Simulated assay, not measured.
Amino acid sequence: MTNATPTAQLSDAGVSIWLDDLSRERLASGSLQKLIDEKNVVGVTTNPSIFQAAITSGSDYDAKIAELAAQGAGVEETIFEITTTDVADACDLFAPIAAATKGVDGRVSIEVDPRLAWDTAGTIAEAKNLYKKVDKDNVLIKIPATLEGLEAITATLAEGISVNVTLIFSLDRYCAVINAFQSGLELAKENGHDLSTIHSVASFFVSRVDSEIDKRLDALGTDEAKALKGKAGVANARLAYQVYEQLFSTERWEVLTKAGARTQRPLWASTGVKDPAYPDTLYVTGLAAADVVNTMPEKTLDATFDHGVVTGDTITGTYAESKGVLYALDALGISYNEVVALLESEGLDKFVASWKELLADVEGALATARKAS
Rank of each mutant, 00 (worst) to 15 (best):
H199W: 13
F248I: 01
G14D: 02
A320W: 06
A290S: 15
F248V: 02
L256G: 06
I168S: 00
V273Q: 05
M296I: 08
I141L: 01
D89G: 04
K258E: 12
V87C: 06
W268L: 03
D302G: 11
L147S: 14
K371V: 15
A261I: 06
F205M: 10
A90L: 01
D291P: 02
T295Y: 01
L342R: 10
I17F: 00
D137S: 13
T222Y: 09
A98D: 06
T314Q: 14
I161W: 01
Y319I: 02
G308H: 08
I161Q: 07
D218A: 13
A232P: 05
A240T: 02
A235H: 08
L217K: 09
L19W: 05
T368D: 15
D210F: 10
S373A: 14
L32D: 02
Y131M: 00
Y174M: 10
A232I: 07
I168Y: 00
I141Q: 07
D291H: 11
N191D: 09
D302I: 15
V201R: 09
I82G: 03
A66L: 02
T83Q: 06
R24W: 05
I143D: 08
R370C: 10
Y131T: 00
E212C: 10
S203A: 11
G317D: 14
A237P: 02
T368C: 03
D330E: 14
D275L: 10
G43N: 05
D137P: 04
R238T: 03
K350A: 14
S49M: 07
S345C: 07
V255T: 15
L130W: 01
N138W: 04
L150N: 05
K102T: 13
T368P: 01
P6V: 14
I55H: 07
W355Q: 11
Q182H: 08
E363P: 01
V325C: 06
T78I: 10
L35C: 06
V104E: 14
D330G: 15
G347C: 03
A152I: 12
L329C: 09
L68G: 00
D172P: 05
N129P: 04
S335N: 15
I79V: 12
K132S: 14
Q264K: 10
G58I: 12
H199Y: 12
Q33N: 12
K133G: 07
D361M: 09
D113I: 14
S57E: 12
V87Q: 02
K189C: 11
C175A: 15
V292H: 04
D349R: 06
N40A: 15
S196H: 08
V87E: 06
L35W: 00
A360T: 15
Y131W: 10
S23F: 05
G103K: 05
S249V: 04
V206W: 09
S354H: 05
L187S: 11
I124R: 00
A28Q: 13
E25W: 06
E251V: 04
V15Y: 00
F80D: 12
D313Q: 08
A152W: 08
K34F: 01
Y278A: 12
A288V: 03
A372N: 11
T166M: 05
R262T: 15
I17W: 00
Y131P: 00
A360P: 00
